[in-house]
Design a protein around this nucleic acid. Structure first.
Lengths: 112, 112
DNA sequence: GCGTGTTGCTACAATAAATGTAGCAAAGGA
DNA sequence: TCCTTTGCTACATTTATTGTAGCAACACGC
C-alpha cells in the first residue's frame, strides 16, 4: 500500500482553479500520461507489456501515472487482461486521435 | 543566445522512434506545454502576460517550453504582440479544443 | 539626456520528479 | 514443488522544475 501519489493533492499550479480543463491539462501534462493512453488505445495491456510498449520506462513513473489515470477514471485494471481504458478513457483517446494525423503533417512540414 | 534547451537532443525515450506521434506526445507531455498552447489559443501574449496566465509559473520552465514549442514550430515570437501561435500551432490547438468539452463532462462524472 | 517601465531572457540554489536496477508477495501452471 | 508472470515497491542517482533575483535592450515621457 502506501500510495505515494495522489493527483488531487499534488497538483501543478492552476489545476484547482475550478476550470476542469486545467485539471485535465495538468494530468495529461505529466510525463508518460499521454503515451500511456496512446498505447492503451487499441487493447488492454499488462503492466509489463505497457512497460515494453513505453520503451522500458521505469516502473516507478509508470505505476504513478497508472494510479493518476486510474483515479481520474480513464484507466482501469481488469481481472485478467491488465490495464485498459474505461469508457471515459476511450472517449478521451478518441479526442486525441486527430493528433496522429496532425503529427504526420507536422513532420512533413518541419523536420523532413 | 546560449539556448540551454534543445528538444531534439534531450528527449524522453521513444520520441525518436520514427513515429512522429511519439515526438509530439513527448513535447506535449512536458510540463506547461499543453497549458501554454491553451493560454495562447485566443491571442498572443507577452512573456510576462503568459507567466501571469500560467499562474506565475517560473520563467525558467516557461522559457524552456517556449523554446521547445518555437523549435517545434507551434509558437513564434512576434514583433510587438509577444508570443503567439503559428498556423501550425493553431491547427494543433484546434485539435485540443474538444478537450475542453470533454473536461466538463469528465468533472460531472468523476468529482462532482 | 535622464528616469521609469516594459520587454525577452538568464543565473542559481533548493526542491520535486523521473530514471535505473533490483526485488517483493501473490497467483497460476506444470 | 519449481518456475513464470502478475502488479507493485525501494532506493540511490540523475534530471527537471521551482522560486527569487536580476540582466541588457528598447520605448516612453520629459
Amino acid at each position: 500500500m502506501t500510495k505515494q501519489t495522489s493527483p488531487r493533492s499534488r497538483n501543478v499550479r492552476g489545476s484547482r482553479s475550478g476550470r476542469p480543463i486545467m485539471a485535465l491539462l495538468d494530468i495529461l501534462g505529466r510525463r508518460w500520461s499521454l503515451r500511456i493512453l496512446w498505447e492503451l488505445r487499441d487493447a488492454p495491456l499488462t503492466s509489463r507489456a505497457l512497460r515494453t510498449a513505453c520503451d522500458e520506462a521505469s516502473p516507478t513513473v509508470l505505476q504513478a501515472r497508472l494510479d493518476d489515470l486510474r483515479e481520474a477514471g480513464f484507466v482501469e485494471l481488469g481481472e485478467a487482461s491488465g490495464y485498459g481504458l474505461t469508457a471515459l478513457g476511450r472517449e478521451l483517446c478518441e479526442t486525441f486521435m486527430p493528433l496522429h494525423r496532425f503529427a504526420e503533417r507536422w513532420r512533413s512540414k518541419s523536420g523532413a
